[in-house]
Write a protein that binds this DNA or RNA. Structure first.
Lengths: 247, 247
DNA sequence: TAAGGGTTAAACCATATGGTTAATCCAAGA
DNA sequence: TCTTGGATTAACCATATGGTTTAACCCTTA
């Protein structure tokens, strides 16, 4: 486990009461919920305790301080929600086009289940930029069996592959790979971070907005490919794609 | 002026000491800076006072409470920074394509001068969705001389115009106007809200990132048009556009 | 020059909040 | 049954923080 405070205790006992497991999970679920919607500064330990339905002392008992509780949640969120997405764009075995398709779908699936996470994460990263590198490096698997010696060097990246595609004449030669990646991320993220604004502007119900998000999953792929691909190549891809969808 | 507290005082005196003007501005500038980077919950009145270089009492003297000070700043920001941008997309006299061009340029110009504003605004709107409609309505000019009786009804919107363009065969017929607008906003906003993440990932210096933002101004236009326009029409536009740029 | 209103600073207050103490509960093992 | 030690609770504490009081301080003007 990842928090030092009650690790000591665990080593001693080696088996835990089922309640401890249960409570620790209750605390984490509650903390995640509150942190996601209020942010670190706006969250209160008492609010988290109430949400978990347990005594405030338990929070400190399991996680020592607000900061440590937050760190645990944030790292866990990063590892389970963000790192797998980042990995898609660094997967040399996956073609760029498949990277885009996989990324958009997985991004939307993940965030529809955690709708407040994107804003939360971007807000906390903005306040503490140092965390970004720290967590990103921690997320890279160190096991040498899984990856080549220097995965971060030898991997063909999203951006490298795009440059290749340009040379092959499949992709528009006036696009900048970095800028494209930023556009795609922006298209993915904004419907979540700006949900209240968009939903108000379009006067949508919650159900309608959820439908909208579901559609965005494929829409972002099309938008990205329209930007990326030469028109003939795009049409070609779209036909193939629609065939597959029908199956 | 827009805050009730010292309006009373002003009616009585009718002329203010130059210091009041000066201090009130100092307070607002400081409050804006602190609120933008810490958010409402993370901001401290003492921090704002220190930033302004004046006594904490002055904040309450001029603005009564933290909440009122915040409300003043937030409304002022919305009116000066957001409302003009929203207006561009509701301007029936402006063609969609010009709306996109004008919007992207103005958005980037505005936010490069207020880099923390987009995240701040989206964060506070997320916490208080009620504000969105309230401010949006307040921003619509009520003067009947300026606008027709029901501007919000008679105006040809961004989205209406796109539907027209589709019928005319200029624009791709598989695009959804709402989704396009969301994509454009996302492409504009993300480089600001996610600055720390992108800058870290791309290992850019502050200067390099500012250059990147400058380039995004036109890049977002191209990306949006690639999504929107049929290829022949896009090529046509681009040629005209490049001619104009050279002049 | 004295009055009076607006302006400013220092000290102060009440409450909220993160964190701690100490006593109690309870299940497992002797 | 008694003991042991982690789990849990309620009460408590110190500090931070938004907000107020009080008194002094201009600066204009009668």
């Amino acid at each position: 486990m990842n928090h030092a405070y009650n690790t000591l205790r665990r080593i001693k006992k080696s088996n835990m009461s089922p309640q401890e497991h249960n409570n620790e999970k209750k605390v984490k679920d509650a903390a995640r919920k509150v942190f996601h919607s209020e942010g670190f500064a706006g969250s209160r330990m008492q609010t988290i305790a109430d949400e978990a339905g347990i005594n405030k002392m338990m929070l400190h008992y399991y996680f020592r301080s607000k900061q440590q509780l937050f760190d645990v949640i944030f790292e866990e969120d990063y590892m389970t929600l963000m790192a797998p997405l980042a990995k898609i764009l660094r997967n040399p075995a996956l073609h760029v086009e498949d990277q885009v398709i996989t990324f958009s779908r997985r991004y939307h699936d993940t965030m529809m289940r955690n709708p407040k996470f994107p804003l939360f994460m971007i807000h906390e990263f903005a306040k503490n930029p140092g965390r970004i590198l720290e967590l990103a490096q921690k997320a890279i698997p160190v096991s040498k069996a899984d990856e080549p010696d220097h995965p971060e060097l030898s991997a063909t990246t999203f951006m490298d592959q795009i440059d290749e595609g340009i040379k092959e004449g499949k992709y528009n030669d006036d696009i900048d790979a970095q800028s494209l990646a930023v556009s795609m991320l922006g298209m993915c993220m904004y419907p979540f971070t700006g949900r209240t604004v968009v939903q108000t502007a379009y006067q949508m119900t919650d159900e309608q907005y959820d439908d909208f998000l579901e559609k965005r999953k494929e829409e972002v792929i099309r938008h990205t490919f329209r930007i990326l691909m030469k028109p003939e190549y795009y049409q070609n891809w779209k036909q193939e794609y629609q065939k597959k969808q029908k199956q």
